[in-house]
Design a protein around this nucleic acid. Structure first.
Lengths: 333, 333
DNA sequence: CTGTTAGCGCTTTCAA
DNA sequence: TTGAAAGCGCTAACAG
């Protein structure tokens, strides 16, 4: 198809003024039905599409929402994205997504391009690097008229709506569950000890385990965790692992397998992982389900509400996660 | 931070004209070094950011690329997205992503909003529904000055650059491999028989199996496939399954497990699935690796080239996939 | 009911 | 070396 026509050209074709065409297309009461019809016909015929840039310039709004995510392969984040999409789809807003790959630099760049008049609002979960170096200036620099909603990995010094997961409580419950099932020595494994959410979860573990024994923390990259867990398991008497993310969950799983502790129920594991993966491991993996989609939906709703009432008080919502019981916390014969 | 300042306001502050400021900021030779410095300082101080809408309107370009994907949880597509991102990241283009959830309506809407002056080009893999109802008018309607690159799920009547996967050949090779390993009765399972890529793969199977036996096609939704395969396996003499997508691969896997055919190597499976999942099944799943990232990179490069040379001939590239040998095609004792 | 005009923020030609 | 002015495509106040 050829380039689409402009208002002005359409007006010339119809031998009326630009404003008449504009008003007709916007169904203004000022225009007679007959001309409206004529204009609409011509518009369709010539494939008229209003120029977005002009609209944006005129209105000072863009009707798009920027979503900044650290990663897309992370199952929680991609579920959250689905959630965001599902509520935005019913509005006249568009979504632009920017993925930072956990890089601070990329995040800064993303925020910069998005805030340069590309979006009216931003939903963000910050990158790992940003949380590590604790540099949030790019977020502080976002103009006041661009509304921000943070979710999951949030930063308290940013004055924005927030959606959190009950990380601390979730692990509290996980530990309680394991204790209830008679587990006496529970190890914590995490590749995300640098993330706020990881720290919350770890805190939940520490606070709830200390009446039993000293906390045993295995933190680091996936392969390190696997090696370390292997060693710990070999030494004996560990009877449960709580793993805070997919990578450590799988490392724990492999270590448990290797030491032949999983199929007989000698080792319990509670991890974080997507449904498909968890269900297809054998034994299947008991997980903490964070309800990513709900988190995303909540964040999107908060932003849309704020568009309507820009001055309302900052809100902070918490989405409770639930323990999804599967094979790795089941007593075997 | 407050709303950022405009050129005009900046000019007033500096008591110079708008054009001077504009030129200074664009480092024009027409402007003296001293005023340049002054302007730049003031710009930084007041956090001047050029208004994107105005820029777009003026230039008629947006420096944005739209990526339209049917799904984000599909591992191949999300790898492709990573690939696209990785090459676009090194340019001054931005990416906006639109996910159609395999819906034609959503795809039409996406294309509409993107082509309304939101992007300079589009990279798309069409939705399942679009391929089923074979309605590509929304793609035909894309203005000529918005360049399109299709990948994976392409449509030949669209005159655009394309990146394909060697679907037909990949399955040809898979069948050959199974035959070589002494497999005599090979079933094909697919939830994607409505997709062009699914059909290509199926064709590869049919063409290469017919010297052995009549093709055995199990097509439909995941649960149907599982039930059907279960029945077939129970009846005996099936010694291999080729599954064309993650869902059917897992259905095949479960069926094989249930009939106790996998751990002893009585049943071989070649499927399509992501690395993590494939490796953590037990036995691990042999897969066809489509090199999603490379596909994405290739598509992005094609688009960027076309921006530079809009009139060059349409290109079509094929990315070869490779068989990733794992446990489900290994002979056991 | 229709048209004229100003202006959104910016670049760029042309004039000074 | 600087400034005035036009114009990108559109909307809306105002005039007719």
């Amino acid at each position: 198809m050829k380039k689409s026509i402009t208002l002005k050209e359409l007006a010339k074709l119809l031998k009326v003024s630009v404003s008449t065409v504009s008003k007709a297309l916007n169904d203004s009461h000022e225009i007679s039905e007959s001309t409206k019809r004529k204009v609409e016909e011509a518009a369709k015929l010539h494939n008229y599409k209003p120029n977005r840039a002009a609209l944006n310039l005129k209105s000072g709004k863009t009707n798009t929402i920027g979503v900044v995510l650290p990663s897309i392969k992370n199952f929680f984040l991609s579920r959250a994205l689905r959630g965001i999409e599902s509520v935005v789809a019913n509005t006249n807003y568009n979504i632009v997504i920017s993925i930072t790959n956990e890089s601070h630099e990329k995040e800064v760049k993303s925020i910069e391009t998005l805030t340069n008049g590309m979006v009216d609002g931003i939903i963000i979960s910050v990158s790992e690097e940003t949380q590590v170096i604790q540099d949030f200036s790019h977020l502080h620099d976002i103009p006041d008229d661009i509304h921000v909603v943070m979710f999951d990995r949030v930063e308290n010094t940013i004055n924005s709506d927030k959606v959190l997961v009950d990380d601390y409580d979730a692990i509290l419950k996980a530990v309680r569950d394991l204790k209830f099932k008679g587990r006496n020595k529970i190890v914590l494994a995490s590749t995300i000890s640098k993330l706020s959410v990881g720290q919350q979860r770890t805190k939940g573990y520490i606070d709830s385990i200390k009446d039993k024994h000293e906390p045993i923390l295995v933190e680091g990259p996936e392969d390190f965790i696997e090696v370390k867990l292997n060693k710990l398991l070999k030494e004996g008497d560990i009877d449960a692992i709580i793993a805070l993310d997919e990578e450590s969950s799988l490392a724990a799983f492999r270590a448990g397998k290797k030491n032949d502790l999983l199929d007989n129920g000698k080792l319990f594991i509670i991890g974080y992982a997507g449904k498909t993966l968890s269900e297809h491991l054998s034994p299947s993996l008991t997980t903490v389900d964070q309800h990513g989609k709900k988190v995303g939906r909540t964040a999107a709703k908060l932003l849309l509400e704020r568009f309507k009432r820009p001055t309302k008080d900052i809100e902070q919502k918490v989405v409770d996660s639930t323990l999804r019981e599967r094979g790795t916390t089941l007593k075997r014969s």
